[in-house]
Nucleic acid binder design. Structure first.
Lengths: 163, 163
DNA sequence: CACCTGGCTTGCGTGCAGTTAGGTCAGCTA
DNA sequence: TAGCTGACCTAACTGCACGCAAGCCAGGTG
């Protein structure tokens, strides 16, 4: 029997929240990167891919899918086009993560670690380690004071309205 | 001009990796929870929803979508059915996060924080704080030694084959 | 100048997520 | 026993994320 989990705190009057649909940052994030193709393209961007042909080859996606997604991710500012030129070739454009795109790394790492733990019973497929000390890296919940935060130590509340 | 990001380390011979498609834990995780409905249902499970009717109401999804997703998430072991009985009612079944489901919290939090930062320029919609000290909680990359890890301090390599 | 090569675009078909509209069914209350 | 209610299921449709096959175009090489 697995452990059951409860969330506590000030988050109970959920029904009274404003516009449950479109104001949710999780759902909005999903609308930006919530396709398999966007995710694997971002993954390869973190792995160092920059050229169209590299993305096609490494992701295994079809060319139209890659082209569409690269355009969308660039339009949304997760990738930026960077012109490059190989010797004896004309100028082409590469794609590089912006700060906005790069900050998705915790999402990708959290998904990677979860998948490794729960979907590959024979053990992780990849090791993600800290250059400094060589030990395994994970995405963990931490507060600004540096405390590691457990599920039952989380308080969720509505932020004060700004405009 | 936004900052460009490079990944360093032992991850370069990417093309030589085995089976780029189905062995990737990120893609596999996406296949498990990569629908908008699965994500918002998990979100409400973290927010404390347990009953079918609650999920329908809070997520804004249609009844068939909720029913299908609750069944799939239960089959995959992210939720478990828990019978409950309200006074004067018959026994019904609720849905509760299992350990496997609960460990998706860093993914959800990372998405929430990214969405708050990059998709809502007027400021975050929600505050997620640590019960102990009241300061804001985020999903951060950390190694087992407790060091916070930056993007350029990450090493990715293939794990040794087990079977 | 003809050709090649990388980086796309267009057209067409498929499958699946999600919706609306309408059952169905068990068991409690009147 | 009839009706209500919560928790679903079924059917039919729409839209979008893909795949495959083919074409296009700029510019550098022979």
């Amino acid at each position: 029997m697995t452990t059951a989990i409860h969330m506590t705190g000030k988050l109970e009057p959920r029904s009274a929240w404003p516009a449950p649909g479109e104001n949710c940052p999780i759902a909005r994030t999903f609308e930006t990167v919530g396709t398999r193709s966007a995710l694997v393209i971002l993954r390869e961007a973190f792995y160092g891919a920059t050229r169209y042909e590299e993305f096609v080859e490494r992701t295994g996606l079809s060319e139209p899918a890659v082209a569409t997604r690269l355009r969308e991710l660039s339009d949304e500012g997760l990738l930026e086009k960077v012109p490059y030129r190989e010797p004896g070739q004309r100028v082409r454009s590469g794609y590089r993560l912006t700060e906005k795109g790069g900050e998705l790394l915790p999402v990708l790492v959290a998904m990677m670690r979860w998948g490794d733990r729960w979907l590959f019973p024979d053990g992780a497929r990849v090791d993600l380690t800290h250059t400094g000390c060589g030990s395994r890296v994970d995405a963990v919940l931490q507060c600004e004071e540096g405390h590691e935060v457990r599920l039952d130590e989380l308080d969720l509340s509505q932020a004060p309205r700004r405009r």
